[in-house]
Amino acid sequence: MKTIFLDRDGVINKEVEYLHKIKDFQFIEGVFSSCKYLQKLGFNLIIITNQSGIGRGYYTKQDFNILNNWMLNQFKSQNINILDVLYCPHKPEDNCKCRKPKTGMLQIANKKYNVDKKKSWLIGDKESDIEAANSFGIANTILVKNGHKIDERYNKASFITSSIKHINDFIKL
């Protein structure tokens, strides 16, 4: 199955530290049209997101699920199907297998959906997203610049762009 893996914070929505409230969630301009475009190309969409705010005690899994369900309903209202949302609730120091740049969430998705790594892409906003994709065997990557410090000289992303709304410049049939 050819898949687009999307990081959430900074790719789908504006970056807000430890986002867990609907009132603080703002979709990034162009995310709906970009996701419709990807679906039209035959990609399945899966969100993979580190959510260390859960492990740090800033919000609960229930808080995450409320926000996540609301977000999925917003996509659904735009006729966009998000196949799955996988998240890591751990803090960086927990040294889990699921927190990006480790590949645990990608491995779970592969077991569930038999991902075609050669035809799949990952769109993220941090080096750890790109590193996870590359370690998993996904070479097609896009790094979205959203304010994180990025040294483009050493970046391993296939492409770098300012926003998800420009992905049709890179992902084509």
Score class of each variant (00 low, 15 high):
residue 33 S to D: 10
residue 108 I to P: 00
residue 145 K to D: 03
residue 104 G to M: 05
residue 30 G to E: 02
residue 39 Q to R: 12
residue 46 I to D: 00
residue 97 K to Y: 07
residue 103 T to C: 11
residue 64 F to Y: 15
residue 109 A to F: 02
residue 45 L to A: 03
residue 115 V to W: 01
residue 79 N to A: 13
residue 68 N to I: 05
residue 124 G to F: 11
residue 87 Y to W: 11
residue 58 Y to R: 11
residue 42 G to D: 03
residue 99 R to V: 03
residue 86 L to V: 03
residue 79 N to M: 08
residue 95 N to M: 12
residue 45 L to W: 04
residue 139 A to F: 07
residue 109 A to H: 02
residue 100 K to Q: 07
residue 108 I to K: 14
residue 125 D to T: 11
residue 32 F to R: 09
residue 86 L to P: 00
residue 162 S to Q: 12
residue 61 K to D: 02
residue 45 L to N: 01
residue 78 Q to T: 00
residue 56 R to E: 02
residue 101 P to Y: 09
residue 90 H to N: 06
residue 156 K to F: 01
residue 77 S to P: 00
residue 138 I to A: 08
residue 52 S to Q: 14
residue 69 N to W: 00
residue 42 G to F: 11
residue 159 F to V: 01
residue 55 G to R: 08
residue 113 Y to V: 06
residue 77 S to A: 15
residue 116 D to E: 12
residue 34 S to Y: 02
residue 82 I to P: 02
residue 96 C to I: 09
residue 141 T to R: 09
residue 52 S to T: 09
residue 99 R to D: 01
residue 139 A to N: 15
residue 42 G to E: 04
residue 157 A to Y: 05
residue 159 F to C: 02
residue 93 E to L: 07
residue 108 I to E: 07
residue 142 I to R: 04
residue 81 N to F: 08
residue 41 L to Q: 13
residue 138 I to P: 01
residue 47 I to V: 15
residue 131 E to C: 10
residue 63 D to M: 07
residue 57 G to W: 08
residue 34 S to E: 01
residue 141 T to P: 05
residue 52 S to P: 02
residue 162 S to D: 14
residue 75 F to A: 06
residue 63 D to F: 08
residue 156 K to V: 04
residue 152 E to N: 09
residue 55 G to F: 05
residue 52 S to A: 15
residue 99 R to A: 06
residue 140 N to M: 10
residue 72 L to N: 12
residue 98 C to Y: 11
residue 95 N to F: 12
residue 49 T to G: 05
residue 116 D to Y: 07
residue 164 I to N: 01
residue 136 F to A: 10
residue 130 I to Q: 10
residue 160 I to H: 04
residue 147 G to H: 09
residue 104 G to R: 05
residue 65 N to Q: 15
residue 134 N to F: 02
residue 139 A to Y: 09
residue 102 K to P: 00
residue 105 M to Q: 04
residue 85 V to A: 05
residue 82 I to A: 08
residue 128 S to D: 11
residue 127 E to Y: 14
